[in-house]
Computed example of a mutant assay.
Amino acid sequence: MTTTIRTLIPEPHVTQRLFADPHLASLWTLLRVFVGYEWLMAGWGKITNPAGVWVGEKAGVAVSGFLNGALAKTGGDHPDVQGWYAWFIEHLALPNATVFSYMVAYGEMAIGLALILGLFTGLAAFFGGFLNANFLLAGTVSSNPLLFILATWLVLGWRVAGYWGLDRWVLPKVGLDAPATEGARTAHSNPV
């Protein structure tokens, strides 16, 4: 029988303070709610679009237009959209534009609601950043760089970003440590 010795690498005090200290929960909550509101409004605008080009009888029209615009940016010496991503657009996204349309609209709403409520904050921020990265890969700038950076910070700060939210109660119910608990901070700072 072999015994595995697990050594924890101590967390630097700076990152422990930024990403795990409940004293900064108010700052993380403001950041989380701002990003959540941006996602919620983006999704709401798509779902309630009166033309029904995102969700409804003409679902997929807006996504097809967006994706065809991205494909137009694949030429030249310095294309805005790389060849491998153009392949993804052409062979996977465009043929399934209706499915992608619903996924984007409802995904943005779900990300926004989860972030505002502080429910599975790290996971919601990860998927928000994933959407931002895809929009950037498709050659769209807009607010995507800022939201991608903020989503990355929220993923790093998930322990305290959901402290003033549902994560504080839901995460222990699913077998995860509550955000920014004393035990979680101690385990990361004192190797055994």
Rank of each mutant, 00 (worst) to 15 (best):
T3V: 14
T4Y: 11
L8A: 09
R17K: 05
P22G: 02
H23P: 00
A25H: 00
A25D: 04
S26K: 03
R32H: 09
V33E: 04
F34C: 11
F34L: 15
V35R: 08
E38Y: 10
W39M: 14
W44D: 04
T48W: 02
V53L: 12
G60R: 07
V61K: 12
V61Q: 11
A62T: 02
F66L: 09
L67Q: 00
L71R: 00
A72T: 01
T74G: 01
G76I: 06
P79H: 07
D80V: 14
Q82I: 14
Q82F: 12
Q82W: 10
Q82M: 15
F88P: 05
E90W: 06
A93G: 03
M103P: 01
V104M: 09
V104C: 06
L113S: 04
I116V: 12
L119F: 10
A125Q: 06
N132S: 11
A133L: 12
N134A: 07
L136D: 13
L146M: 11
L146D: 07
I149F: 12
L154T: 01
V160W: 05
W164T: 07
W164F: 10
D167S: 01
V170P: 01
P172T: 14
L176C: 05
A178Q: 08
T186Y: 09
H188A: 08
H188V: 08
S189D: 02
V192E: 01
